[in-house]
Computed example of a mutant assay.
Amino acid sequence: MEDVLVPIVAVATLFLGLPWVIFHYITKWKTAATITGEDEKLLDELHYLARQLEERLQTVERIIAADNPEFRALPRTGSENEPYDFSRRN
């Protein structure tokens, strides 16, 4: 009897248990990966604040450059949407 029970349990685990665990975590992953409306609103606010800070920084740099001709702002590479690469700083 025990000789028959082990292969049945092994086959059941392989063909029933393993796919169930895989599909369970796939559905959990898909439901958790969605962004809520509140998260989207927060991201929009943070993006707006980042734009405002960037504009303020540019204004301060222009004022300092007007007062001090030797002032050299951090060099910007690429488009304005790309983050500044601090590893290239002198």
Results as ranks from 00 to 15, higher is better:
L46W: 07
A10R: 13
I22F: 03
F71S: 03
E2Q: 14
E2F: 10
I26R: 05
K41G: 07
F15Q: 07
P19S: 03
P83T: 06
W29S: 00
A12V: 13
R89I: 05
E2Y: 09
D67V: 04
V11D: 09
L46E: 14
T27I: 03
V11G: 02
D85R: 02
Q52V: 03
E70D: 14
P69V: 07
N90I: 02
E45K: 15
V6G: 05
H47C: 03
E40S: 07
E40N: 04
A10F: 07
L57I: 09
I22G: 00
E38H: 07
T27A: 06
H47Q: 13
E70V: 04
N81K: 13
S79F: 03
P19D: 02
T77F: 07
T13F: 14
E2D: 14
L18Y: 06
R62K: 14
G37F: 00
E40L: 05
E40D: 11
A66M: 08
Q58D: 11
K41Q: 14
V9E: 11
V21P: 00
R56L: 12
S87H: 11
Y25E: 13
F15A: 11
P83L: 11
V60S: 11
V11P: 01
A10G: 03
L53T: 08
E70Q: 13
V6M: 08
R56G: 09
F71Y: 15
W29M: 01
V60D: 13
V60T: 15
R89M: 09
V4L: 15
R89D: 06
H47Y: 04
I63C: 08
D44K: 15
G17L: 08
L57A: 08
A66E: 15
T27R: 02
L57F: 08
R51P: 00
R88I: 04
I26F: 04
K28T: 01
V9Y: 10
T77V: 03
R51D: 11
A65K: 05
E70W: 05
A10K: 12
A50L: 10
P69K: 15
S79M: 05
E2T: 09
D67I: 05
F71E: 02
P69M: 10
T31S: 12
N68W: 03
E80T: 10
Y25R: 13
H24R: 12
W29K: 00
T27M: 03
S87A: 08
T77Q: 12
A10S: 14
N90S: 13
L74G: 12
T31E: 01
L74V: 08
R56A: 14
L46V: 06
R72P: 00
L43K: 15
A50M: 09
E40F: 04
